[in-house]
């Protein structure tokens, strides 16, 4: 009889312990979600944690297959095309969890828009003195033909809103805009510099797609602002 009572008490204890344990784990799960929500915005995207890292002394060179530039449509994929002065540059790590915790490295540029060449109709008004821009290159991943973006210099940037990116990660927690086009010297337009053959071809393809009648054909060596202006003249906001 005594034995039966002890066994019954033992069984009840085990069942209660299991319920308590489950409750604790659920509570822990809810707490973890709550913490994540403070980091993420209201989007359905994967929350990210961003922190600053020290650039490596020697850049790590990688070899990359790029999407062709004509993957992009100059009038629907870019939200802002502007001459931007680089005010600051910070190497950052984006951490996110999807089965395992992953880390992405890149550079967050602080830029001052000097001249807006194109702004899409549905993009936000640029009223800030400075914008933050995500550049996928960093000292931890520098494609072999990658061009270095330098502080104080002015470039024509083709930018996509962070909220519009196809990435499932919540880039709105990282930056305002994402720098688009392959990260090679051919597509990095320094203010006042001549166009590369690749960039001239890109602009001509875009003008052809949009059937622009008053477009002046871009040629290699032509001033970058002139060529880009010709594509976007009278378009956008």
């Amino acid at each position: 009889m005594k034995k039966k009572v002890i066994i019954s008490v033992g069984v009840v204890f085990v069942i209660c312990a299991a319920f308590i344990l489950q409750g604790v784990m659920e509570k822990h799960g809810k707490l973890a979600d709550a913490v994540k929500k403070t980091i993420s915005s209201e989007t359905n995207k994967i929350p990210v944690v961003v922190h600053s890292v020290t650039p490596l002394a020697a850049p790590v060179r990688t070899e990359t297959e790029w999407l062709p530039a004509d993957f992009y449509d100059a009038f629907t994929d870019f939200d802002l095309v502007a001459v931007c002065r680089i005010v600051d540059s910070e190497e950052v790590c984006i951490e996110y969890t999807k089965e395992i915790t992953r880390k992405e490295y890149g550079t967050r540029l602080t830029v001052q828009p000097e001249e807006i060449l194109y702004q899409s109709a549905h993009s936000k008004e640029v009223d800030a003195d400075s914008l933050s821009v995500w550049n996928e290159m960093s000292s931890r991943r520098m494609p072999e033909e990658g061009a270095l973006i330098q502080k104080g210099e002015e470039y024509i940037f083709f930018l996509q809103s962070a909220e519009k990116t196809d990435s499932p990660l919540d880039y709105s927690a990282v930056c305002d805009y994402i720098l688009r086009l392959p990260k090679t010297g051919a597509y990095l337009l320094k203010k006042g510099a001549g166009l590369s053959e690749e960039m001239a071809e890109f602009l001509n393809v875009q003008a052809g797609r949009a059937e622009l009648s008053d477009y002046q054909e871009a040629k290699a060596g032509m001033t970058a602002e002139k060529a880009v202006n010709s594509l976007y003249e009278g378009k956008g906001k």
Binding site: E65, W66, K98, L169, P182
Partner: peptide, 15 residues
């Protein structure tokens, strides 16, 4: 082989 969800203009890269 690593899968990345980062915003990139690349399809893949090797290190």
């Amino acid at each position: 082989i690593i899968a990345s969800d980062a915003a990139s203009d690349a399809t893949a890269s090797t290190l």
